[in-house]
Design a protein around this nucleic acid. Structure first.
Length: 637
DNA sequence: TTAGGGTTAG
């Protein structure tokens, strides 16, 4: 697409006022004359003074007055009137008027890109600044590709880009899918020697991050000679997007020990999210203190993030403290609290909070209903769940999305209504995703519905979304039914399709670090102590009556082999490490990326009584709070 | 001569 008319640069004696396209714009006002009924006499007088003596204008204070008028005009109509006047006096082709005018018309608050493009395409010989304005303006618009075209044209016409040009065009490339364009710009930055510009490199980091080239972004960060808070924040966001959440925690300490920059509100927001994901309560508390010390905790978004952090770390009481202390609560605050109560097993309180929210005059939105419905599903409140599901569209005009359906499928599945749940999925107006099929597959596993489980797997295959975990669920169904032939079939199917099981992983926070364990892990520096501790715990628990649950978790292997493998599940290793490394009486908090198994659930329940320790396990689906031999979710499910 | 970067909660 051509952006600019090709004849522009060859037209040397262009008479702007007679043929300029902008003069035909619909919104174009009448040209100013001294007799025009101008809305602002002040403006009229200033313009009149400035244009009286054209010959002297370019070098007088009158030109400055006119320029400052262009820069300060608060309404678009005034700006266009000044434009018209400049045209009438043949002044517009001079850069000293054209540049500030273009800047004003193209960028916020006026942002009239069509107008800007027309005046630009009729300008005799745009300089780098004027190109920069256009690239920047289009970079901020819905047509960033035009910004990139301006950049290409600028190079074609031999106008040398500066550091800001690269920054603006990089922003265009972030918005359009152009890895190659960005790489070209990077090469050009190196060629032109602009790599010492920290802000430009920060933008470039954002570019690599947006194209999922996180290691390239980090490399740029390493190459920066000076890093400010924003550069560090971009690094954190790269780690978060690149699933290197654990590395973000170290960045916080590095920033705090740096001399020239400190974590800001944005840093804290991202870190609170990281802590929520990592179940890193101690670290999250540290970020909370830092926010208080710096006054960031006054901000609504930080407080809302704190509610989520505490809830996701299993400390719903602390989440509630933050929530209670908020003078003003918006829909996000309420939803965070409702979801936090729901995932921690306080379904009735979540519903109560939902009612209070309405009394407080805050309207729920779709995410609030996800929280409310998940409260129902986590607490097995089938009737309430159905009631809320119906009322959300009927009373509140919020159509159910895939998450809402997911909660209802979960609710029905847990209640044993697997066929009804299957019918509901088939009747949905939205396309079922892998998650909803997995929810149903989980229900098939609970209720040993092998036939429906097979059908669900077919749907996952259709979506090309089947994972090892799905087949394991199916295996569990067959093995719990003792159907070893089918078990063999599924194993063969997995082998044929090249489906590999990724080891489940459990994490626990200790000493400012996140310690990670997989089953039978031997990588931890304290592995000998951990295994010894686990053996001791097993012995103690067996004396108290713990018997390993071995029916469904493994398949057709010898009983002894099963018992050995079960004893070294990742969550048991993490718990043993917790018993070993934390003082008696304190809570042990473990996060697991998949679902906790029945045996580990029994193990933790028993341990909470025998060792008198609170154990909090966050698995893929929910929290399990174990206290004095009981679990908050009553039983495994 | 002028102008610029990141993140936005559930």
């Amino acid at each position: 697409m051509r952006v600019i008319s090709s004849h522009r640069l060859s037209v040397s004696t262009f008479r702007y006022h007679s043929s300029h396209a902008a003069a035909r714009v619909d919104h174009h006002p009448q040209p100013i004359s001294l007799t025009t009924n101008f809305t602002s006499h002040l403006h009229t007088k200033k313009i009149a003074r400035a244009v009286v003596d054209r010959s002297a204008l370019l070098h007088t204070e009158k030109a400055e007055a006119l320029i400052s008028l262009i820069k300060s005009t608060s309404t678009k109509s005034h700006l266009l009137q000044i434009h018209a006047h400049l045209i009438r006096n043949s002044l517009f082709q001079h850069s000293i008027f054209f540049s500030p005018f273009l800047f004003r018309i193209a960028l916020p608050p006026f942002r009239d890109l069509n107008y800007a493009k027309r005046v630009f395409s009729n300008f005799r010989k745009p300089d780098y600044f004027q190109y920069n304005v256009m690239i920047r303006a289009y970079g901020m618009s819905d047509s960033p590709e035009i910004g990139f075209q301006f950049y290409q044209e600028m190079l074609r016409f031999g106008v040398k880009p500066n550091s800001l040009t690269s920054s603006f065009v990089t922003s265009c490339c972030i918005k359009i899918w152009s890895l190659f364009g960005g790489l070209q710009i990077h090469a050009r930055i190196l060629r032109d020697g602009h790599q010492s510009d920290g802000r430009l490199l920060t933008t470039l980091m954002g570019f690599y991050s947006s194209k999922e080239k996180y290691s390239d972004a980090c490399k740029l960060f390493d190459e920066m000679c000076k890093r400010d808070t924003i550069a560090w924040n971009v690094l954190i966001s790269c780690y978060m997007r690149g699933k290197r959440t654990r590395d973000t925690l170290g960045v916080f300490d590095m920033m705090r020990s740096a001399n020239d920059c400190q974590p800001d509100e944005v840093t804290c927001l991202m870190l609170l999210q990281a802590c929520a994901n990592l179940n890193a309560l101690v670290f999250g508390e540290g970020v909370h203190r830092y926010c208080e010390e710096h006054g960031f905790d006054k901000a609504m978004n930080v407080r809302n993030a704190l509610i989520t952090m505490y809830s996701r770390c299993g400390c719903v009481e602390d989440a509630f403290e933050v929530f209670k202390g908020m003078a003003e609560k918006d829909v996000v605050s309420w939803t965070a609290m409702i979801s936090g109560l729901a995932s921690n097993g306080y379904g009735r309180d979540a519903i109560e909070a939902f009612r209070e929210m309405q009394s407080a005059g805050v309207s729920p939105d779709d995410q609030t209903f996800t929280g409310v419905l998940s409260a129902c599903s986590h607490s097995g409140l089938l009737d309430e769940g159905r009631m809320f599901f119906n009322s959300m569209s009927e009373e509140f005009g919020i159509p159910p999305n895939i998450h809402h359906y997911g909660c209802v499928v979960d609710l029905m599945g847990r209640a044993g209504m697997v066929n009804e749940a299957y019918n509901l999925i088939n009747s949905m107006k939205v396309k079922p995703d892998a998650t909803i099929w997995r929810t149903l597959l989980g229900a098939c596993r609970i209720h040993r519905q092998a036939d429906l489980g097979e059908q669900v797997i077919e749907h996952l295959i259709e979506l090309k979304a089947q994972e090892a975990g799905d087949y394991v669920l199916l295996l569990n169904i067959y093995s719990s039914l003792g159907d070893w032939d089918k078990v063999m079939n599924v194993r063969k199917m997995m082998k044929d399709r090249g489906i590999q099981t990724n080891p489940a992983c459990s994490t626990i926070e200790f000493g400012g670090e996140i310690h990670e364990f997989v089953a039978n892990d031997s990588s931890h520096s304290r592995k000998t102590e951990i295994y010894e501790m686990l053996d001791e715990i097993n012995q103690q628990l067996r004396m108290a009556g713990y018997v390993a649950e071995i029916v469904s978790e493994l398949h057709n292997v010898g009983v002894e082999e099963k018992q050995i493998a079960l004893s070294y599940h990742s969550e048991k290793l993490a718990i043993a490490f917790g018993v070993l490394s934390s003082p008696p009486g304190t809570s042990i908090r473990v996060a697991k990326d998949l679902r906790i198994c029945v045996d580990c659930h029994n193990f933790a329940k028993m341990l909470s009584a025998v060792y008198n320790r609170e154990v909090v396990i966050r698995d893929r689906n929910r929290f399990h709070h174990f206290r004095e031999g009981r679990c908050s979710c009553n039983d495994y499910w």
